[in-house]
Write a protein that binds this DNA or RNA. Structure first.
Length: 431
RNA sequence: GGAAGGGUGUCCGAGCGGUUUAAGGAACUGGUCUUGAAAACCAGCAUGCCAGCAAUGGUAUCGUGGGUUCGAAUCCCACCCCUUCCGCCA
């Protein structure tokens, strides 16, 4: 949620920037409700004041008849206006919540993800002296991917991952855990990228997988609901990303300044209904209803939020480079960064089997947009402030394994293991 | 599933119709003292919203929402959540 003060002071800017993100919000109507709300509020508060004054005078003693009837009169007037105020606040709230976060000045303006700007390409696109296979060709041949049986048991877009692929997934997890909990590794990333930021290690987290409706909504990740799995009996939702349960961890909390930055590395099996994506990426395991993901989430103050964003991206890149996966980095345009975002990047890995770059990572900087509704604050010497939130994929396991399979495949249909992962694979160099 | 207890400020915790501008601790901030620190002592210390250039003033907030009352943290109703015990269970 945006600060209403900001909207009042910059109505045209807010309209324009919202439009750039593809959100049509009627700022004039919002400000109209705001004005009405404030006027009503003043009248209500004036009445409440008279009521409080009356109570002040009758404190500790029985009020007389005149005071009682005056009190009754005030009570009815207050109640009447309060009802009107509540009604307007409801409308006001809906509109205010509909306003997206403002993109930072350097976010490219665009109409769709096609307008995302390529920042750089890292790594040579793998070349083979044979025809590259897709991950599903290899995966099925090696009996690593079994969608047929998963279809019988669970339906489409579910999979049984089997054998060495499972070993590989756990190796990646172990690898990332060891790196992100190591201040030395973080120091190296900071140095290489000339960042001015703490090297505080990430705390590994296994979060709950279900979220309450109000908390999900406060994160501004409940929508689109069609893409969420709902547990109807309990008014709970299955999270669609560890971000949803990590970012909301400190809802209604006041953090200590000295504890910042709070950095979490969450591992979660995430669930998405993929509504509206029927037929898209139906082959392989690129787009599943259920997938495992390692996610970074951090809470900082307003001064270090942007630097933290850069830091998380730098970590993503370092991890990709350490595995030797070719990728490109995209600065997401206004249309693609998402409602709560002020800025964001995607990393697309090169997938030789498909001859294309495909999204494997995202990094999102939300400024104080999420924390305003979550009421996640930090106490500083100059007062209590809203924290800034950042989230970024460490590795989406499924898609990372796709990239490994396709980039490091051999003519025999085997897969070489990146050196960095070998210690976590019992020293094996190939599967 | 059965039963009981409980949700109060950053935290702990008292209050259970009108001396509450929410007691008392702790933490935190500043100061005194000290070679420095600790301790002790002194002082300060919630947030949102509204008005105002500001100083400041007003108002709301004791899980949430309704209700009773001239007046609600306190009484009533509904809901949410947490804890404990029993049962079942990985």
């Amino acid at each position: 949620m945006l600060d209403i003060q900001f909207i009042r002071n910059n109505p045209d800017l807010v309209s324009e920037k919202s439009m750039q993100k593809g959100y049509v919000v009627d700022i004039q109507q919002l400000l109209g409700f705001d004005k009405e709300r404030r006027e009503l509020m003043q009248r209500v508060e004036e009445l409440r004041r008279s009521r409080n004054d009356l109570n002040e005078h009758t404190k500790g003693q029985k009020p007389n008849e005149e005071q009682i009837s005056k009190g009754r009169e005030l009570r009815d007037k207050v109640a009447d206006l309060e009802h009107k105020l509540t009604a307007i606040e409801k409308e006001y709230d809906i509109l205010l919540k509909a306003v997206p976060n403002m993109p930072l000045a350097d976010v490219p303006v665009g109409k769709s993800e096609n307008d995302n700007q390529e920042v750089k390409k890292i790594g040579e696109a793998s070349s083979f002296n044979f025809e590259a296979k897709t991950h599903w060709q290899i995966g099925e041949a090696r009996d690593w991917i079994d969608k047929e049986r998963a279809g019988k048991v669970s339906g489409s877009r579910f999979v049984y991952l089997k054998g060495d692929l499972v070993i590989l997934q756990f190796a990646i997890i172990q690898y990332v855990l060891s790196k992100l909990t190591d201040a030395g590794f973080l120091d190296q990333v900071i140095r290489l990228n000339n960042l001015k930021i703490s090297n505080k290690p990430f705390q590994p987290i296994l979060p709950p997988y279900v979220v309450r409706t109000d908390v999900y909504d406060a994160m501004d990740r409940l929508e689109p609901r069609d893409d969420r799995y709902k547990l109807d009996q309990d008014q709970l939702w299955l999270q669609g990303s560890a971000e949803h349960v990590l970012g909301s961890m400190h809802i209604n909390e006041e953090l200590r300044y000295d504890d910042l930055p709070l950095r979490y590395l969450g591992y979660a099996t995430s669930f998405r209904r993929e509504a509206g994506n029927y037929g898209k990426d139906s082959e392989g395991i690129f787009r599943m209803h259920q997938f495992d993901k390692l996610e970074m989430e951090s809470f900082t103050d307003e001064n270090t939020g942007l630097e933290e964003h850069k830091f998380l991206i730098a970590i993503q890149e370092q991890l990709m480079q350490n595995l030797g996966i070719p990728y490109r980095l995209l600065e997401k345009c206004t249309a693609d960064i998402g409602k709560p975002n002020a800025k964001g990047v995607d990393i697309d890995a090169w997938l030789p089997g498909q001859g294309n770059y495909r999204e494997t990572h995202t990094a999102d900087y939300m400024t104080d947009y999420q924390s305003r509704r979550l009421k996640t604050r930090v106490k500083t010497n100059t007062g209590t402030k809203l924290v800034h939130t950042n989230d970024a994929t460490a590795f989406a396991l499924g898609r990372t394994m796709i990239a490994i399979i396709e980039n490091f495949q051999t003519a025999e249909g085997k897969v070489n293991i990146p050196e960095a992962l070998q210690p976590y694979m019992g020293g094996r160099k190939q599967i």
